[in-house]
Amino acid sequence: GIPATNLSRVAGLEKQLAIELKVKQGAENMIQTYSNGSTKDRKLLLTAQQMLQDSKTKIDIIRMQLRRALQ
């Protein structure tokens, strides 16, 4: 079985993952909103794209940590 310490770690990672998935969803929504907007929305679009990139990276890292914890 999986050690108890790993189980609480997994629960924490799953919570983090859920949050990051919401951030990713929000960033994707912002990108959709701003991509057909005016030029003043360009900065917001770039910010949203950066957020999305960061979020995807975090999600990958969390998933990797989850896999390790579940081994």
Rank of each mutant, 00 (worst) to 15 (best):
G1W: 09
G1Q: 09
G1M: 08
G1C: 15
G1Y: 06
I2Y: 09
P3Y: 03
A4M: 04
A4D: 12
T5F: 12
T5K: 09
T5E: 13
T5I: 11
N6I: 11
L7G: 10
L7F: 02
S8Q: 12
S8R: 07
S8V: 11
S8W: 04
S8G: 09
R9H: 11
R9M: 11
R9P: 05
R9E: 13
V10L: 07
A11N: 04
A11W: 05
A11I: 10
A11T: 07
G12Q: 15
G12R: 15
G12D: 14
L13P: 00
L13D: 00
E14S: 10
E14M: 15
E14F: 15
K15M: 10
K15E: 06
K15T: 04
Q16F: 03
Q16S: 05
Q16W: 06
Q16K: 09
Q16G: 02
L17M: 03
L17V: 01
L17H: 01
L17I: 02
L17D: 00
L17C: 07
A18N: 06
I19C: 12
I19P: 00
E20P: 00
E20Q: 14
L21W: 05
L21N: 03
K22V: 06
K22W: 06
K22E: 07
V23Q: 06
V23P: 00
K24H: 06
K24S: 05
K24Y: 14
Q25D: 05
Q25H: 06
Q25N: 05
G26D: 15
G26Y: 15
A27F: 14
A27T: 03
E28Y: 06
E28M: 10
N29K: 14
N29C: 15
M30E: 03
M30S: 03
I31S: 01
I31A: 02
I31T: 01
I31Q: 01
Q32N: 10
Q32V: 10
Q32D: 08
T33G: 06
T33A: 14
Y34Q: 03
Y34K: 02
Y34N: 02
S35D: 07
S35Q: 11
N36Q: 11
G37R: 03
G37Y: 01
T39Y: 09
K40T: 10
K40A: 13
K40D: 07
K40E: 11
K40C: 14
D41C: 08
D41N: 07
R42D: 14
R42G: 09
R42H: 13
K43T: 11
K43V: 12
L44G: 05
L44S: 04
L44P: 02
L45C: 05
L45P: 00
L45E: 02
L45G: 01
L45M: 05
L45I: 03
L45Y: 04
L46K: 08
L46C: 11
L46M: 09
T47K: 14
T47N: 12
T47F: 13
A48Q: 02
A48W: 10
A48S: 02
A48C: 03
A48N: 01
A48P: 00
Q49S: 03
Q50V: 06
Q50C: 12
Q50T: 06
Q50F: 04
Q50M: 08
M51V: 07
M51N: 03
M51Q: 05
M51C: 06
L52A: 02
L52I: 03
L52Q: 01
Q53T: 08
Q53L: 07
D54L: 07
D54M: 07
D54W: 05
S55M: 02
S55I: 07
S55D: 00
S55F: 01
K56F: 04
K56P: 00
T57H: 13
K58T: 03
K58H: 03
K58Y: 01
K58N: 04
D60G: 11
D60P: 01
D60V: 12
I61M: 13
I62A: 01
I62G: 00
I62M: 02
R63C: 14
R63A: 04
R63I: 12
M64K: 11
M64G: 07
M64H: 10
Q65W: 07
Q65L: 15
Q65A: 11
Q65C: 12
Q65K: 09
L66H: 01
R67I: 09
R68C: 14
R68W: 12
R68I: 14
A69W: 04
A69F: 06
A69C: 07
L70D: 03
L70Q: 07
Q71C: 14
Q71E: 09
